[in-house]
Design a binder for these strands. Structure first.
Length: 551
RNA sequence: GGCCCGUUGGUCAAGCGGCUAAGACAUCGCCCUUUCACGGCGGAAACACGGGUUCGAUUCCCGUACGGGUCACCA
């Protein structure tokens, strides 16, 4: 038995499976050649941000567009940061945005033949691989305490050396076997460290987004297993993505600097590393520049923000797609009604510089998405949203379902539909006036129309109101009423000779509009009246007559 | 500080050695119009800087500046 084999047996006394056993247990996937296997591997910290969705969306598209498979693995190796129910919340949030996994952790448990998919449940696997690594002389135990590590760092700082546990700074790299045995026997906790090659050659990696990367070889003896026996990200990534047969790893560019570590471990194990794609970070504009999105300062970073505000999931997806693939918008213009799944997503067209999140752009995308949605669907979406987040809206909207659907349909059947519905909270305040319990007079009468004048106009309008009239005759009647009361039928006439009139039709309809909507701006009056129904129209006119009478 | 990545209008971005340097959002003006929204037309607005290479650089190379990332028993 070699010294190294003895060390492995000392460190990991319970014999387990060999790497070869695992190779047989997790055979290559029965997929056509070239079919991508991608994964989302979040840590369950409870905070789900837009970046998660952004990356997940790229993973999902890549897999599903090319006959591959997309799975969910939970990286719960850091107990300290974990929050309860985080995985379920994540699955729920992604599902809301239309992202489904083929395999991995599910709301109730897990599915798939390459599990377990929660890293804490894979402890045995990591340990078995670690044992073999140790037996091959690629790993060694390190007994350094936090304090000692701090000392090393301080000396490095003083000496102007690079930080880290490497080369001569790696105190326990060449501990005598007897010393190790003694410490283990005493029950001293240890981490298992990677034995990095003394002078690692630069590595060349082909990145799916950045192209050819030449990075300095790794010389750090990074920690593979923490003292509690749980692996670090680096080790878990290599083991899991190998045995789960991941072909494409999409992750944020913050991983670029540890890429040499990963490539090195893959190579040492004789495994082929996955195709890496390092995506840019989502940034946020701030006075003078860009900065990384921050949890505390940017509520729109959290996925909950979009749900709470009532953005349609499709709007968020389309927006993200415009960030993901720059030619998406052009494609959309050419295929206005095609489902976005038909867009040929491509890694090569992903940009490599950080993108600023732009709420205005999202709003624009959202307007277009809602304008294209059948009104019935929009109404259903709104009711669901209100049920979850906006009780006041839920109360009135569910009481009058059909009414809401009719309201949403206003001005949306034409070739150029209205685009004034953006997101839930905005829509709620925009549509309040339609519902009696929420109706108030918000704006004032036009400057050139006094209360008495308004009262007269309203009384006449109310007396002559014909709910059955079509739009043309209704407007003709309105113009007649305006003319009889000294208002120009056409704004142009008034502009030409203002001294001849009190105002123009616009002023008269402004008074009616105020009576019906409480505002000086609203969608087309005739349509509003038709949707409101005759009773409601008459009631509001009466109420307005009372109201201006008191002015 | 070391190493790595990035840098085209306010924002997202086309561009891959020769272009009057696309388009979208935002913005401004005009038109349409009973208000708003929609729609149409038009305007303003960019290759970070300095060296190379080249007949010719936004495009290739090297510096500088700026921004970001990373140097944990976090992912």
């Amino acid at each position: 038995m070699t010294e190294q084999a003895k060390l492995a047996a000392l460190l990991f006394p319970n014999s387990g499976r060999s790497i070869a056993d695992y190779e047989a247990l997790y055979p290559p996937r029965p997929l056509p050649a070239g079919a991508p296997v991608t994964r989302l591997a979040p840590s369950p910290t409870g905070f789900i941000h837009l970046g998660n969705l952004y990356g997940a969306f790229a993973d999902e598209r890549l897999a599903h567009q090319n006959g591959g498979l997309f799975f969910l693995r939970i990286e719960d190796t850091d107990e300290k940061r974990e929050t309860a129910g985080a995985a379920e919340a994540l699955i729920g949030a992604l599902d809301y945005f239309g992202l489904r996994f083929d395999e991995g952790v599910t709301a109730g448990g897990e599915t798939g033949a390459y599990g377990p998919y929660r890293q804490r449940r894979r402890a045995e696997l990591y340990r078995d691989v670690a044992r073999e690594l140790t037996a091959r002389g690629l790993a060694y135990p390190c007994f350094c305490t936090e304090d000692e590590l701090g000392e090393i760092r301080a000396s490095q700082e003083a000496a102007g050396a690079n930080f880290g546990y490497y080369g001569l700074w790696a105190r326990h790299r060449n501990l005598a076997p007897g010393e190790i045995e003694r410490r283990v026997g005493r029950g001293e906790p240890f981490t298992l460290r990677w034995r990095a090659p003394a002078a690692a050659a630069a590595v060349t990696v082909q990145d799916g987004i950045r192209g050819r990367l030449v990075l300095p070889g790794n010389e750090q003896d990074i920690v593979l297993l923490k003292s509690n026996g749980i692996p670090t990200y680096h080790f878990a990534h290599v083991v899991d993505d190998h045995f789960m047969r991941t072909t494409h790893v999409l992750r944020g560019e913050e991983w670029l600097s540890s890429l040499p570590v990963h490539v090195q471990i893959f190579a040492a194990l004789g495994w082929e590393h996955p195709f890496y794609c390092h995506t840019p970070l989502l940034l946020k504009a701030e006075a003078g520049g860009k900065r990384k999105l921050s949890k505390r300062k940017d509520p729109e970073l959290g996925l909950d923000f979009y749900r709470r505000e009532g953005y349609h999931p499709r709007a968020v997806r389309e927006y993200l797609l415009t960030l993901l693939n720059s030619d998406y918008e052009e494609w959309r213009l050419g295929h206005p009604t095609a489902p976005m799944e038909e867009f040929p997503f491509s890694l090569a067209r992903m940009g490599s510089s950080g993108a600023l999140f732009d709420l205005q752009k999202l709003n624009d995308v959202s307007k277009n998405v809602l304008a294209a949605l059948p009104p019935g669907e929009t109404a259903d979406f709104l009711r669901h949203w209100a049920g979850d987040w906006q009780p006041e809206a839920a109360a009135v909207w569910t009481a009058e379902r059909e009414y809401l659907a009719a309201i949403v349909a206003i001005g949306r059947r034409e070739a150029n539909p209205r685009k004034d519905l953006v997101y839930g909270t905005q829509i709620f305040s925009f549509l309040r006036f339609f519902f009696d319990p929420l109706f108030t007079i918000e704006d004032a009468l036009p400057d050139n129309v006094g209360a008495t004048e308004a009262r007269g106009l309203l009384a006449q309008y109310s007396a002559r109101y014909d709910h059955a009239a079509d739009k043309e005759s209704w407007f003709a009647a309105l113009k007649r009423l305006a003319a009889e009361n000294g208002y120009a039928e056409k704004p142009r006439d008034y502009k030409k000779q203002p001294e001849l009139y009190k105002g123009h039709v616009g002023d008269v309809s402004a008074v009616i509009r105020l009576a019906l909507s409480g505002r000086k701006n609203s969608p087309d009056l005739w349509e509003v009246q038709q949707v409101m129904g005759e009773d409601r129209v008459r009631r509001r006119l009466e109420a307005m007559i009372q109201y201006v009478g008191q002015l």
